[in-house]
């Protein structure tokens, strides 16, 4: 894993940055949300995908791209979470100042 992180750190950082920006925006975003039922279904899908990756079922180059996608998605989610959390802190402070 260390070797992979060394080779792929720039791409993973990119995914994190995209996630951070998306998370930052999501707190104040007023667009459509993913329905709760879909989030559940997608969570199940994510578990299935992780299981497939863990079982190394996809061979060769496609297997690597599959794993790469999961890693990028993981860092994206992490970025989103950090972004949203920080934005939430900022927004909460602003609201407190206005009051």
């Amino acid at each position: 894993m260390t070797i992979l992180a060394t080779l792929l750190w720039d791409w993973l950082l990119g995914a994190f940055v995209i996630g951070f920006c998306m998370g930052w925006v999501a707190v104040v975003y007023r667009g459509p949300s993913v329905p709760k039922v879909w989030i559940r279904r997608l969570s199940v899908l994510a578990v299935v995908i992780l299981a497939i990756a863990a079982a190394k079922l996809v061979p060769g180059r496609f297997g690597y791209w599959f794993d790469l996608g999961i890693a990028l998605f993981g860092f994206y989610l992490l970025g989103c979470a950090v972004g949203s959390w920080l934005r939430d802190i900022v927004v909460t402070r602003q609201q407190a100042r206005f009051r």
């Binding site: 995209i18 993913v34 989103c80 949203s84």
Partner: peptide, 12 residues
């Protein structure tokens, strides 16, 4: 918030 994270999937 996570329900609104989906647009970032396109650049991802």
């Amino acid at each position: 918030w996570s329900a609104k994270w989906w647009p970032g999937l396109v650049p991802l």
